[in-house]
Amino acid sequence: MRIEFTLNSESVSIDTEPQRRLLDILREDFRLISVKEGCGEGECGACIILLDGKAVNSCLIPAGRIKGSEVITLEGYRETERFRILMESFEDAGAVQCGFCTPGIIMTVESLLRENSNPTEEEIKKALSGNLCRCTGYSMIVDGVVRAVKKVKNDGKSI
């Protein structure tokens, strides 16, 4: 089946089985290694990408569903200004240890911020509830997001 979609702002077209996982398409066909497989069953969030602006587990999305959609992975998102702010905030908060959960977390945070530019700690925790991290205990990740939100506010930029 031929599937056309937008991937990190470029139109792409692939020929694949409609049941194939988006996770495999991104990793194998496009070599987008930021998309991680931590469980393959929708439990860990390591494979989260943005599908039409929403954070989804790419291991649960069959190829057939992305026809005509917009897919953004960290490879695309990391070129943005907001990513740069998030990265610095994550560094200053100590939000990263082994890093395996991090790309999925960054994408989840981006989808949160698209809906709510000024989330509370509770809202951040809730948004992250589908991203497992075995290293940090989460608070330092939440702190990373809080710092980023603050920084943007202080800079007077809208996020």
Binding site: I33, K36, T73, E75, F90, E91, V96, G99, T102, P103
Partner: peptide, 19 residues
């Protein structure tokens, strides 16, 4: 505390794990 030396590559998703 200092910024960890391997943070940026991990946050950018550039680090290569075995898979």
């Amino acid at each position: 505390p200092i910024r960890k030396v391997d943070d940026q590559d991990k946050i950018e998703g550039k680090v290569r794990y075995i898979a």
